[in-house]
C-alpha cells in the first residue's frame, strides 16, 4: 500500500515574508494518478507544485516524493528532482540551444548518460510529442504550441516518475491550446502520474482522477471530476466555477 503513494505532503506551510502562501496543506498522490489543481489567481496552486520539486522552500510540514523526504539537504533535492519533471507556463526553453540540445542537456549533465543514448532518448520523446522533424531548430523558430511540446519532451527525457504542469496552456494562442492538451492527454493515457495547474476544465473532466480547488493557500474542496463539477460543496468553489465556466 505504501508503494502506491508517490507524493505525500503533510501540514505544509509557506510564507513569503509576512504573506502566507500555503496554509496547512495535506496532499497525497498515488502512482498513476492524474490531479487537476484549480483556483483563483493567488490561491497558491502554482506555489504548491513548485514546493514538490523544491523550487520553493517550505517553512513547516513535510514533503516526501517517491520515498525521499525533502529535508532541505542538497542530496534530497537532487534525488527528488530526478523523479519530478516540470512544464512551465512560459515554456522556459533554452533559447541558445537547438530543440535537440535542450532535450539532451539534463540527461548528459545530471544523469551522466552518454551522448549517443541521450540523443536516442531525446529523439524518441520528440517523436512522441510529434515534433521530431524540428529537432535541429532553435526555440524561437517554433510556434508557442510547438515550444511547449518541446518543453514536455525535455522534461520526459529525464524519465521522471511524476510530471508537474504549471498552467501549461495559459500563455498560448487559443488555436495552439489543443495540440498541447492532446499531448498531455496522451501522456495521461500512458499512465504518467500528473499534477496539472490549469483552468482547462474540459481537460479536467477528461483525464483527472481528482480535481482539487484551492483558495487563499488552502485546499478547499476535492473530488472526482463528475461530482466536483456537478455538485460543488463550498460556496467559494461554486463562485469560482461559475466565473470560469461562464467563459466556455
Amino acid at each position: 500500500m505504501q508503494d502506491q503513494i508517490l507524493i505525500e505532503m503533510k501540514g505544509v506551510q509557506k510564507w513569503y515574508g509576512g504573506y502566507q502562501a500555503l496554509r496547512d496543506v495535506d496532499l497525497t498522490v498515488r502512482r498513476g494518478e492524474k490531479i487537476v489543481l484549480c483556483g483563483p489567481s493567488g490561491s497558491g496552486k502554482s506555489t504548491l507544485i513548485r514546493c514538490i520539486n523544491r523550487l520553493e522552500p517550505i517553512q513547516q510540514g513535510s514533503i516526501v516524493v517517491n520515498g525521499h523526504r525533502l529535508d532541505g539537504s542538497i542530496k534530497a533535492i537532487d534525488v527528488v528532482r530526478q523523479d519530478v519533471g516540470m512544464v512551465f507556463q512560459s515554456f522556459n526553453l533554452f533559447p541558445h540551444m537547438t530543440v535537440l540540445q535542450n532535450c539532451m542537456l539534463a540527461p548528459i549533465r545530471a544523469r551522466r548518460i552518454g551522448k549517443t543514448d541521450a540523443e536516442a532518448t531525446a529523439r524518441k520523446y520528440l517523436e512522441r510529442v510529434r515534433i521530431g522533424d524540428q529537432a535541429e531548430k532553435y526555440p524561437a523558430q517554433l510556434s508557442g504550441g510547438q515550444q511547449q511540446r518541446v518543453a514536455i519532451a525535455r522534461a520526459l527525457c529525464v524519465q521522471p516518475k511524476v510530471m508537474l504542469f504549471d498552467e501549461p496552456t495559459s500563455a498560448l494562442d487559443p488555436e495552439m491550446v489543443k495540440e498541447v492538451l492532446d499531448t498531455m492527454i496522451g501522456l495521461a493515457n500512458d499512465g504518467m502520474t500528473m499534477i496539472c495547474v490549469t483552468h482547462e476544465m474540459g481537460f479536467a473532466r477528461q483525464v483527472a482522477d481528482r480535481v482539487i480547488f484551492m483558495a487563499e493557500g488552502q485546499i478547499i474542496e476535492e473530488g472526482a471530476p463528475e461530482a466536483f463539477f456537478r455538485n460543488p460543496q463550498h460556496a467559494r468553489t461554486r463562485q469560482f466555477l461559475g466565473e470560469i465556466l461562464a467563459h466556455h
Binding site: N53, L55, G85, S90, N92, L105, A106, R111, A151
Partner: peptide
C-alpha cells in the same frame, strides 16, 4: 525562468 527550468531538470 531559465534558472528555474534548469533547476527543475536537476542541473547543478
Amino acid at each position: 525562468g531559465q534558472t528555474e527550468a534548469a533547476m527543475a531538470l536537476g542541473l547543478h
